[in-house]
């Protein structure tokens, strides 16, 4: 019969996702662990995400300013940077950084728990490790990435404001007005909603890779590595899908 490791893997991940939906919304609910994961996944990623967001905003501004000045459209820099950050750069860069930081750590953590039988030990203790480890993490990444993205967008826009003020002056109020003038709900909401899917992808792939790690320490490394690779790829694919879908819904 026709067999392909790629398809097998895709099928397995889909099955894993199915299990998440089957088990994730039935008691018992691991509330404490969920909050702890939110803290780890969300709050502790903030510095990293904040720094990348700041640099993203600054660089975008400083890069686009000369070009825009050439066309005499310097006044459009806040609008353009705001649109770029909120629609695309913010979500995608935050998600990629998040995949690098959280995807790998989840992959490595669950992977090492798997190979040292800690997951089995949980099962034996009468805990459903899938709920305790996987559901909490996937939920945490799904809910925290949008928040991180919003904050990264905010920080990035502030950096853009700072960047504009290194070349000339603008007031914060004018800057905010300029940014808002380029935005509508149809731009903000799809960009916001797609980050839920990014977060879900990062958490799910990280957990899948870790949960099914084999072959000792090398397996842990491989799990962490492929968690990042696969979830980054998935983020781009989802982004493409998001563009198509928002286009179909007529939001573009």
């Amino acid at each position: 019969m026709f067999s392909s490791p790629f398809l097998a893997e895709t099928g397995a991940i889909a099955q894993f996702a199915g299990r998440f939906f089957r088990e994730g919304f039935r008691p018992r609910y691991e509330v404490r662990e969920f909050f702890h994961q939110c803290y780890v996944v969300g709050y502790q990623s903030l510095p990293m995400v904040g720094i990348t967001g700041f640099i993203m905003g600054l660089v975008l501004t400083l890069q686009s300013q000369p070009t825009m000045a050439k066309f005499g459209a310097e006044a459009w820099v806040p609008t353009m940077v705001g649109l770029t950050i909120i629609r695309e750069m913010g979500p995608i860069i935050t998600a990629l950084v998040f995949a690098g930081k959280i995807g790998s750590s989840i992959g490595a953590e669950l992977g090492s728990m798997r190979v040292t039988e800690q997951i089995d030990a949980m099962e034996v203790s009468g805990t459903n490790p899938f709920k305790y480890l996987v559901v909490t993490r996937v939920l945490a990444t799904t809910l925290m990435l949008p928040l991180l993205t919003v904050l990264a967008d905010g920080i990035g826009l502030y950096a853009s404001y700072v960047g504009i003020n290194t070349q000339g002056t603008t007031t914060l109020a004018l800057f905010i007005n300029n940014v808002l003038s380029g935005l509508t709900f149809a731009e903000v909401l799809p960009a916001f909603f797609k980050t839920f899917f990014f977060g879900f992808a990062v958490g799910l792939v990280g957990c899948y890779k870790g949960y099914h790690a084999t072959k000792g320490t090398a397996g842990v490394g491989a799990a962490a590595n492929s968690a990042v690779v696969v979830s980054s790829l998935l983020i781009f694919i989802l982004d493409l899908l998001a563009v198509q879908i928002t286009g179909l819904l007529g939001f573009n």
């Binding site: 949008p146 919003v150 904050l151």
Partner: peptide, 8 residues
């Protein structure tokens, strides 16, 4: 963290 994010 959550309050600030949602607030923004």
């Amino acid at each position: 963290f959550v309050v600030v994010g949602v607030g923004c």
